[in-house]
Design a binder for these strands. Structure first.
Lengths: 229, 229
DNA sequence: GCAAAAGTGTTCCCGTTACACCCATGT
DNA sequence: ACATGGGTGTAACGGGAACACTTTTGC
C-alpha cells in the first residue's frame, strides 16, 4: 500500500472480521474503501502493523479506532499469504475475529483515511468483498462456529443483561440451525455460569422475560471442564 | 537474519513443529542452530519465506528439505509476532504443525546452512529452545490435542498398516491419558473408517495383532459427520 | 379476549463408561 | 510353562433429543 512495496522483503497487515448481533441478525462490520486498490469496494477493516506493536495490540487498535470500544473480545485465527492476494505485492495478512455488543449502533467513526464509511452488514447478505476477504470471512465464521461450542463467547455479542431467548438466538444464528427451547435452557442453566437477576425485560408488548448475567467468576472455577454444545 | 533487517518494513518466517511417533514416544524434530542468534541452541526448523511461494508451499519445502518426504500432513495454526521475539528485529513467524510417519529414522538431512543437525526429541524431555519456540511448541501440542478429537490425524503418525494398539498409543500420547482398550476399539471400529487386513503383525514375540488400514474413501463419505473423542 | 412470547417435565434412546478373563504366539 | 500383549461382551448410567401446553403481559 506504498510505492516500492516490492522492494520490501515482505509486508504484513491485520484484517478483522467484527461480528455483532442486533437482536435479529448476525452482522459484520465492513468499510468502504477510499483508496486503490479496490477503491469503492467493501472490505474487512484492517491495517498495516506498526513496528513496535504486538499483533494483538495492533488488532486491538483497529477495533478501538473503528468502534470507540475497548477490551473487545478477539482472537487471531489464521494467516493469509498467497502471493498475488494483493495486487501491489506480497502482503501477508493476519486475520482476527472480534465479537462486540451492538448497542446504539452509535459511534462508528472510521478515522482512517482509506475508508469512506463503516457499515454493519448481515452475514447472510454480504456485498462482494475486496482482495480475498470473502475467504477470510468464511474461515472466520467457521472458526467461531467451532468456538461457540466450547467457549462462552456468545455473551460477548449480548448486552450485559440478556434473556435466555436472546442467548438462544445467538447460538442459532452462529450454528445456523434451530434449537429446542426447553433443551437449550436446561443445558445452558446446567452449566451454572448464568446468574438469574431479579429483573425483567422492559418495553416489550408481551410477557417480560427474566434477565440473566454471565457469571465470569463461576465460569473461571469450572476451568478444565469443557462446555459442549 | 540479515544485515539491515530493521530497515525492512517487516520480515516473516515459518516455523514447524514436526511430530513423529516411533512406537513408544511422541517426538518432535529439532535442529541445532549453527548461526547467531542462538547459535548452538535447539530450535524448531524454520525458514524465511521467499517472495513467490505461498505459505503452505514454503512450509512444505521446509519439511521436504529436512526429511526427504513429500505430501506431509501439516496445518498452519498461529502467528507469533511479539516485537522483541527476535533479537535482530521484527520477525513475525507463522507456525505450522506437521505429522509424519517415523519409519527407519533414516534420512534426516538438514541441507540448510544454519543447522548442524536435526534430531528427534521426546516431547516429554525437550531441551531449552531458542527464541519463543517453547511457546510455539506448547500451542502446537494444544492444537493437535483438540484436532485429534475430531479429525483423523492420528493415522498420519502411523505406518500405512498398523494395529489397533498402536493407534491407541497415539491417542494416549497426544491426549495425555490412558484409554480403555475395549472401549477404544469398539468406538474406533464403529466409525467405519478402518479396513481390517488379512494380515498380521510380524516379528513380535507374542500373539501377532491384526493389521488395519485407514480407509480414506469411507472417511470422505462421512463428510459432515464429526468424529468425536 | 387476543396475540406473542415466556416458561416448564418427561420419556426414550443411544453413546460412554466401567470392568476381567481367556487366547495365541514366541521363547 | 510362562510371559506378553491380543482380543472380546455386558450392564449401569447419563446426557441428548423429541415433544405441547399453560402463563403472563400489553394492547
Amino acid at each position: 500500500m506504498k510505492e516500492g512495496l516490492a522492494q520490501f522483503n515482505s509486508v504484513f497487515s491485520i484484517d478483522c472480521v467484527i461480528f455483532g448481533f442486533d437482536g435479529g441478525e448476525l452482522k459484520i462490520l465492513l468499510i468502504e474503501r477510499n483508496e486503490e486498490p479496490f477503491k469503492d469496494w467493501w472490505a474487512l477493516p484492517g491495517n498495516l502493523v506498526s513496528e513496535d506493536q504486538s499483533l494483538d495490540q495492533s488488532a486491538s487498535s483497529i477495533l478501538t479506532s473503528l468502534t470507540g470500544l475497548r477490551d473487545i473480545y478477539m482472537e487471531q485465527y489464521y494467516a493469509f499469504g498467497d502471493p498475488g492476494r494483493h495486487p501491489q505485492g506480497r502482503v501477508v495478512t493476519l486475520a482476527y475475529y472480534a465479537l462486540i455488543r451492538l448497542g446504539g449502533e452509535k459511534d462508528l467513526h472510521p478515522i482512517t483515511t482509506y475508508a469512506k464509511r463503516a457499515v454493519w452488514w448481515s452475514v447472510n447478505d454480504l456485498p462482494k468483498l475486496a482482495f480475498d476477504h470473502k475467504k477470510i470471512f468464511d474461515k472466520g465464521l467457521e472458526k467461531i462456529k467451532r468456538r461457540i461450542k466450547h467457549q462462552p463467547i456468545a455473551f460477548e455479542l449480548l448486552p450485559e443483561k440478556f434473556t435466555l431467548t436472546q442467548l438462544q438466538h445467538v447460538y442459532e444464528l452462529i450454528l445456523g440451525k434451530k434449537l429446542d427451547k426447553r433443551n437449550f435452557r436446561k443445558k445452558m442453566l446446567s452449566f451454572g455460569v448464568l446468574r438469574e437477576l431479579n429483573e425483567k425485560q422492559k418495553g416489550v408488548s408481551y410477557r417480560a422475560a427474566t434477565l440473566y448475567k454471565f457469571d465470569r467468576r463461576k465460569y473461571a472455577k469450572l476451568f478444565g471442564k469443557e462446555i459442549s454444545f
